[in-house]
Design a protein around this nucleic acid. Structure first.
Lengths: 210, 210
DNA sequence: GTCTATAACGGGATAGAC
DNA sequence: GTCTATCCCGTTATAGAC
């Protein structure tokens, strides 16, 4: 394997385990068994290395999400259900992780970690990378659940993102769901938990519901 | 205000904003306008400072959670519903945040951040602090939803924790829910989203559901 | 393209004056 | 109890030999 790719995979592992601030270029180059200067030669800076790592992982997943959503929204199709929309959002991610085996588990932690990174430059990267996907899926949900206003659906979609992120980051018992079972079961459990919440009646201020 | 407390509140702010690794003792003492050595004098180390900060915030919230659950499970009461259990879990947290105003917002980010901290010593602290609460609430849920096995309920409870964590950490649009609206509305929205998912039928491997 | 060496700096921790 | 000064280490980044 060439130096460039060795660096990228070592960076995945280090960032996944220790976060952005907790990883040093030295620990990455040590793990990749290359010299310290090579990161600057290939990527320019620590931040640029993170961006490269993130893009390589997220871009194909988001492309697949949009492809599946396009398929659901094809002219000759009936409007997609909430369950179908959620599946198109969740499955590409979990499928990629399952497909890559050990490296998939590392990537899972890496991306979960990146979502929750305090560094503002990281959250800006994430927002950039997810802007289109977020807007498209929210639109689809608004059509599938016309009774709930879009502001609350946006918030509920964020709840789903939160769950996925947590699932990816978790190291202990929660990780078992990614390792032990096939991604199809995990996908179904996520849909089973989140879909009813998406369809629940709007909650407006001042109205006693519970 | 005395030096000890000044350090603690500055640490909340710094850790909330930049995470554990991203905060330096120097930035904390600068914000608290005390000298660098005082942290070691009062707390011993950076790690011990984090633990002190975390405990001061989390302990009263968890005590209140258990108190409310005790009340629901009193002998003369009917067994609590899922909605009641979730409320006892969610409300003490959001109520404290709302009550503290500006500092509440900082504390919200701080605790959300701590949950997702890569540092293993931090996640051990969190696990310690939440062991009892987690076990008690899981037991209550198992009784309220007897049709779903406890392993899946444990996972669904984690989903709720994930959502709360994300909500607390979020800085942008999601934060609006903590600032703009009263905590009672946020509590009801959370319950509305999560309760149906808790009660959803079990998903077992190999069974085609969706 | 790959390496060593080093610059320039900031980190946590501590000793010791007051 | 509070401060200054300092130790010693690890950090990112770069210069320059090969």
């Amino acid at each position: 394997m060439d130096t460039r790719q060795r660096i990228l995979e070592a960076a995945e592992r280090e960032f996944a385990e220790h976060g952005f601030h907790g990883s040093s270029l030295r620990s990455i180059t040590r793990a990749a068994r290359v010299n310290v200067a090579s990161i600057h030669y290939y990527y320019g800076s620590k931040e640029a290395l993170l961006r490269a790592t993130l893009e390589q992982i997220v871009s194909p997943v988001n492309a697949e999400r949009l492809r599946q959503l396009d398929e659901l929204q094809a002219e000759d199709q009936p409007p997609p259900t909430v369950e179908q929309i959620l599946r198109a959002f969740i499955a590409p991610d979990l499928e990629m992780i399952a497909r890559l085996g050990t490296r998939g588990a590392i990537i899972a932690r890496f991306s979960g970690r990146s979502y929750t990174e305090p560094e503002t430059v990281v959250s800006r990267m994430i927002n950039d990378l997810f802007a289109e996907v977020g807007a498209r899926f929210l639109d689809a949900l608004c059509i599938a659940v016309p009774d709930v206003d879009s502001e609350q659906l946006r918030w509920r979609l964020r709840c789903l993102v939160a769950i996925i992120t947590y699932l990816l980051t978790a190291q202990g018992t929660a990780r078992a769901l990614l390792d032990a079972e096939d991604f199809e079961t995990t996908t179904r459990r996520l849909i089973a938990f989140a879909a009813p919440g998406m369809k629940a009646p709007s909650v407006t201020a001042g109205l006693e519901v519970v």
